[in-house]
Amino acid sequence: MIGFAIDMDGTVYHGERPIPGAREFIAGLRERGIPFRFVTNNSSHNRQFYADRLDRMGFGVTPDEILTSTVATVRFIKDNRGGRSVYAMATPDVKAEIAESGIRMASEGRPDIVLLTFDTTIDYGKINRGYHYLLQGSEFIATHPDDVCPTEDSYDIDIGPFIRMFESMTGREATVVGKPNRLMLEMAAAEMGVGPEDVVMVGDRLSTDIRMAADAGTRSILVLSGETDLELLRRSDIRPTFVTGSVADILTEFVDSRKLF
Rank of each mutant, 00 (worst) to 15 (best):
G3S: 01
G3N: 03
A5D: 04
A5F: 14
D9C: 03
V12D: 12
V12E: 14
H14M: 12
G21R: 09
R23K: 14
R23T: 15
E31D: 07
E31H: 06
G33I: 09
V39Y: 08
N42M: 13
N42Q: 12
N42Y: 09
S44G: 08
S44W: 07
H45V: 11
N46Y: 14
R47F: 01
R47L: 07
R47E: 14
F49Q: 09
Y50E: 02
A51Q: 08
R53L: 12
R53V: 15
R53P: 01
M57D: 09
G58Y: 06
G60V: 10
E65C: 00
L67F: 01
A72I: 03
V74A: 02
V74E: 04
V74H: 04
R75N: 04
R75E: 08
R75V: 03
N80L: 01
R81V: 11
G82F: 11
G83I: 06
S85G: 08
S85Q: 06
Y87K: 05
T91N: 11
P92L: 02
P92T: 04
D93K: 14
D93H: 12
V94Q: 13
K95W: 11
E97G: 06
S101P: 03
G102L: 10
D112C: 00
D112V: 04
I113Y: 05
I113W: 09
L116K: 09
T117C: 03
T121A: 11
T121C: 10
T121Y: 05
T121I: 13
G130D: 12
Y131H: 15
Q136P: 02
G137N: 04
G137R: 13
A142S: 15
A142Q: 10
H144Q: 07
V148A: 13
E152H: 10
E152P: 04
D153I: 15
D158E: 13
D158S: 14
D158L: 10
I163S: 02
I163C: 07
M165T: 08
M165I: 10
F166H: 02
F166G: 01
M169C: 06
M169V: 04
M169S: 06
R172Y: 01
A174S: 10
T175F: 10
G178L: 06
G178N: 05
K179H: 00
K179G: 00
P180F: 00
R182S: 10
M184R: 02
M184P: 01
A190P: 09
M192K: 00
P196H: 02
P196N: 09
D198R: 13
V199L: 00
G203Y: 11
R205I: 02
R205C: 01
D209E: 07
D209H: 09
D209Y: 08
A213V: 08
T218I: 13
I221P: 13
I221F: 15
I221Q: 08
L222M: 09
E227P: 01
T228V: 09
E231M: 07
R235Q: 12
S236I: 12
P240A: 06
F242D: 12
A248N: 12
T252C: 12
F254T: 14
D256P: 07
D256K: 05
R258N: 15
K259T: 11
